[in-house]
């Protein structure tokens, strides 16, 4: 029923997929269990066109202006930004660590690449996340099939291009299965140059 509310009004430019924005925030001292993660995450808008996207996005706080321990997520409609979701169960994510001050620009660029279908990996992309932390900020892009090497490498190379990353930028990949095992999003990743 929710899908029917989000239609493309005349004159607007449809996106290949509909996307939902989510926001989450938690107290870093509390360990993240699935239960409290689900309680702390809220969706606040679904968009189907380029123009709808800008209407929502332009009213958001820029991630670089957020304080504390918070995340913005933009995921395809119907996919929850959780490791356990059916679309994510066999997936994983690329992680890019950003020094403070870069998150807002990189977040916008990764979103525009996803909405514009720049990754060319079929149905593989699930969504993107910007995670605001104390020492650094982290950008992630989630895909469906962690062991699909052709897609994960293509996603990595597209990221380098659309974010204009220096060639020596370290890229990290972590499967959601590993995240579930060590209950951590960003520790124990596989590094590649």
């Amino acid at each position: 029923a929710r899908s029917k509310e989000v239609v493309a009004p005349p004159g607007e430019h449809p996106l290949q997929y509909r996307y939902t924005f989510w926001y989450s925030r938690r107290t870093p001292s509390r360990p993240a269990s699935t239960h409290n993660y689900e309680q702390n995450i809220r969706q606040f808008g679904t968009v189907a066109t380029v123009e709808q996207f800008w209407r929502v996005y332009s009213h958001l706080v820029r991630p670089g202006d957020l304080s504390g321990y918070s995340d913005f997520h933009l995921f395809k409609e119907g996919i929850k930004p959780m490791w356990e979701d059916d679309a994510n169960r066999n997936g994983g994510k690329w992680i890019i660590r950003l020094r403070k001050g870069l998150a807002s620009r990189f977040w916008e660029n990764i979103i525009l690449a996803m909405l514009g279908e720049q990754f060319m990996v079929g149905e593989e992309i699930c969504g993107v996340v910007v995670s605001i932390r104390f020492q650094e900020d982290i950008l992630s892009i989630w895909n469906k099939t962690a062991n699909d090497q052709i897609s994960t490498i293509r996603i990595r190379d597209t990221l380098r291009r659309v974010l204009n990353l220096p060639p020596n930028t370290i890229m990290e990949y972590k499967t959601h299965n590993d995240s579930l095992k060590d209950n951590s999003s960003f520790r124990n990743t596989k590094l590649t140059l």
Partner: peptide, 21 residues
């Protein structure tokens, strides 16, 4: 089927459209 592909400039240009306000 065909994919709807937009480059960054196209998307940024739509930001100022009256429909996006």
């Amino acid at each position: 089927g065909t994919r709807i592909i937009y480059d960054r400039k196209f998307l940024l240009d739509r930001r100022n459209s009256p429909l996006a306000q």
